[in-house]
Structures are given as C-alpha cells and as structure tokens.
Design a protein around this nucleic acid. Structure first.
Length: 423
DNA sequence: TCTGGGGTCCTAGGACCC
DNA sequence: TCTGGGGTCCTAGGACCC
C-alpha cells in the first residue's frame, strides 16, 4: 500500500511552551535563546514580524526587543521535552505508525485509514491544541518531502489555517512553484546556491530538471532522492523504531573565556559525565572518545586555536571514571598556555552494545564492580536529581566556565516549588 | 561585554589484503 | 627488469537537519 504521510509540526514550539504557563504572553512577541543566551532558536510570528531571524545573536537585537516589549527566555529543555512527550502521546492515537522526528515534529502514516484527509488533519490539530495547549500545523502528502512542503505552506498561508493536503499532482505543482529551492527539506544553503547556478529557483523547476545524472553527481544520492520525492516517489521511509545513537556528543560554550587547564578539565569532566549517562541509558559502551576545545572564532584580530584529538580504548567502556581519565590525558596534550578557550566538548563514538563488553588481556577494561557502581550512581541521580552523585573531577563552586541563563523560566513541570500558583 | 548544541548521512581517499 | 587490480574498512570532511 502506498504511504500517506502527515507531518505534524508544533508552531514556534519552545515559545509556545513558555506561553503555556504565561497566558499573558499570548499576543506579545516571544523568543527563546540558545544555550548561553547566545542567539534566537525559537520565535513567535510577532517576533518574526519585527525582523528577528532564526539564529540572530541576542546582543545585536537587544534594543529592538526592549523597545517592542519582547518576552525573552533562556532555553529550558526539561520543560520542552516534557511538553513534547505529551504532544507525541496525543499524536500516536491518530495512526498505527508514527515516527518522532524531532522534539517538535512527527510523521504519521495515514495509509489504510478510511478518512477524509482534510477533516482528519483538522481533527489532529484541534485535538492536540485541546489536550496540550500547543498549536500545530499539519501537512499531508505521498512522500515525506511533500508532506514537509505542505506543512510549510500551512504555516504561512492565512487561508490554509495550518492544514494543507497535497495528494493530487496539480495541487503539488502549484505548491512546488511557490516553494523556494532553499526551503525544500534536505536542500541547504550551499546546495541551493549550486542549484541557482543551474537556473533552478523553485521546487517545481527542480522536480522537472531532467539531467538526473548531473543531480546525482553534484548533490549526491540524497539530492537525487529528494528530487524523486518531489515527483511523488517515496524514497524516505517512516522510521518507527527509536534507534540507538551512533555517537553521543556533549559540548558547551563557556559563560566567560577559560585560560587555565583546571577550568577546561572540570568542564570536560562534566560533559563526559552527562555523555556517559546518556550512553548507559541506551545500554551502549564506547570504544573511541574525542575531545576538542577552541578559542572564540568570532574574535577578530586574534589567532583562532582549534584542538581536537581522539583516544581509542582497547575494550569499550561505559565507566565515567575511565572516560574522564583518558579525556584528561587527551586534553592535557591539546592544552596551550595563553589561549583563551571559548568552547570545549567530548564525543563518544564507536558505540557498541554493552553485552559485547569483554575483558581485555592487555590494559584496563570495565569489570562487574564498575558496571554496578555506574548503575547505582545513575539510579541515585534519577531519584534525587542530576549530579547528586558525581566525580570530584567535575569540580565544586567553579562557575567560570558555566553557561549563562539569565532569562530562565521556572521549572513549571519538573520542580514542585515552581508549580504555577493560582492565587 | 554578548554569535548554540546534538545529531545523521554521504563521499573521497588512504591503508591494507590477496 | 617487469610494479595489477579489486575489495573492504576506516577516517576526515562536508552538508544537512532541528
């Protein structure tokens, strides 16, 4: 049976989450900042109308925001994932198959359902809003890429009211003509420039471009598949099983620059700790770690320093202590006196299922005791709160490298003391 | 003063093997 | 002296996504 994809996308998701607990913000422009209060990662329509773009650094538009009474928030991911779970749970009742594509998007396969697609899409939208308070848009098409395009149009068009169905080719062609080449899912900045070089400006022209070999050559297999998807030929399937991550990365920019090795070591120990926690949660162990640190790439007139190096374990490990120990060795090699570091991070890769753990004849390996210890630490931290138990390597009371979150909303859904009060 | 973080996939090219 | 060629695996780097 041919698939019928519905893409459901939450409107201005992070902002909508903030508004849930602050209905007074419903008609005010709202924006949510990235970590470190760096740049905008979510904007409501009112904020977009003021000309603030995705990724705009906050400091550049601070005045504009103040003048226009914009409500600005630091990102509060525990709140957003909590709300996301609720939205996904509602969505899952509308089709037998669902792929959670990101924190604010999901694909459903509606094939085989005996419904009027337009009506059903509206029902999905209204139900999610009624049960969670989050506004969503729904786009429907025979391929994921067309569903994405339908969804985008639904968001933009007043008439559509957040719902667009693109199941017949005439409608598809009209939609594709209105879609700029860079707005197609999978066509980014670089590739849209190259396509413009071929005289292709919108999605319809891309669909009708006949030299497929050329497309394959310039834009690789993914570009070719995207072209077929525009033609209604499904190339990307629904991924209904949640797969284990193939690599786990944890990195942060520092609140203020770090010049000493101790500060870097503490930050890396913290990032390693949270990366390892994630890794154990999916029952994996890593064979390779990579540590990186660099200075501020935006500082003009200063030499940019970028260091990265990896370490390969003889046997995969899931022991935070072992990861920190070798991450520090790598870091000590990377460290240069006199560099002002702006960001550091660690990547765990070559992840294997932890059942495959085996003792090494040479060197260290995880033993039963260390596995048990890690389990206990994870359990305690799950119950008592993150970082209740942690390595001394993570440091105490050293705030220099920590990130800034000056506009954080209360933890409405994850801290009793922050429950909204009604009196 | 102030510019995010966490992922995936694809390809090219080198190393290595027979 | 003559110095192949195909397959596989790994890695780095690029591009993309949200």
């Amino acid at each position: 049976m041919k698939p019928i994809y519905a893409l459901i996308d939450c409107n201005s998701f992070f902002c909508s989450c903030e508004r849930l607990f602050r209905p007074d913000l419903n008609h005010r422009p709202v924006g949510v900042l990235s970590n470190n209060d760096g740049c905008f990662v979510s904007r409501t329509n009112e904020l977009k109308a003021l000309g603030v773009k995705m990724g705009d650094p906050y400091f550049k538009v601070k005045d504009l925001c103040q003048k226009n009474n914009v409500a600005v928030f630091s990102s509060n991911f525990s709140l957003y994932t909590n709300i996301s779970d609720r939205v996904m749970s509602v969505l899952s009742s509308f089709a037998p198959e669902m792929e959670v594509y990101s924190v604010d998007e999901a694909f459903l396969n509606l094939a085989g359902l005996d419904v009027d697609l337009n009506k059903y899409a509206r029902e999905i939208k209204e139900t999610v809003f009624k049960w969670t308070g989050i506004p969503v848009s729904v786009g429907i098409g025979p391929t994921k890429t067309l569903a994405k395009i339908a969804n985008n149009l639904g968001k933009k068009s007043q008439k559509a009211q957040g719902v667009v169905v693109l199941m017949n080719e005439d409608h598809q062609n009209i939609a594709l003509e209105r879609t700029e080449i860079g707005d197609i899912w999978g066509i980014g900045r670089k590739n849209s420039l190259k396509l413009r070089g071929l005289g292709i400006r919108n999605a319809l022209q891309f669909k009708n471009y006949k030299n497929e070999k050329n497309i394959q050559k310039i834009f690789t297999k993914l570009g070719r598949m995207t072209q077929d998807e525009l033609r209604g030929i499904p190339c990307f399937e629904l991924n209904t099983v949640i797969e284990k991550k193939k690599e786990i990365l944890c990195s942060r920019s520092f609140g203020s620059p770090v010049a000493n090795l101790q500060g870097l070591r503490e930050s890396i120990a913290n990032y390693a700790t949270s990366a390892c926690e994630k890794m154990r949660k999916q029952e994996s162990a890593c064979a390779v770690i990579e540590v990186f640190c660099h200075s501020d790439p935006y500082k003009v007139g200063e030499q940019m320093f970028y260091g990265r190096e990896s370490y390969k374990f003889l046997t995969p490990t899931m022991d935070t202590r072992r990861v920190i120990k070798y991450a520090w060795k790598v870091l000590d090699d990377l460290f240069r006196m006199g560099v002002l570091y702006k960001k550091a991070g660690i990547r765990l890769s070559s992840l294997a299922d932890n059942e495959q753990l085996q003792a090494s004849l040479f060197g260290e390996s995880d033993d039963i005791k260390s596995l048990k210890l890690m389990r206990v630490i994870d359990q305690v931290n799950a119950r008592e709160g993150a970082n209740t138990l942690r390595s001394m390597a993570c440091g105490v009371d050293n705030d220099t490298w920590k990130m800034r979150r000056d506009h954080l909303s209360p933890r409405f859904t994850s801290g009793w003391s922050n429950l909204p009060k009604c009196f």
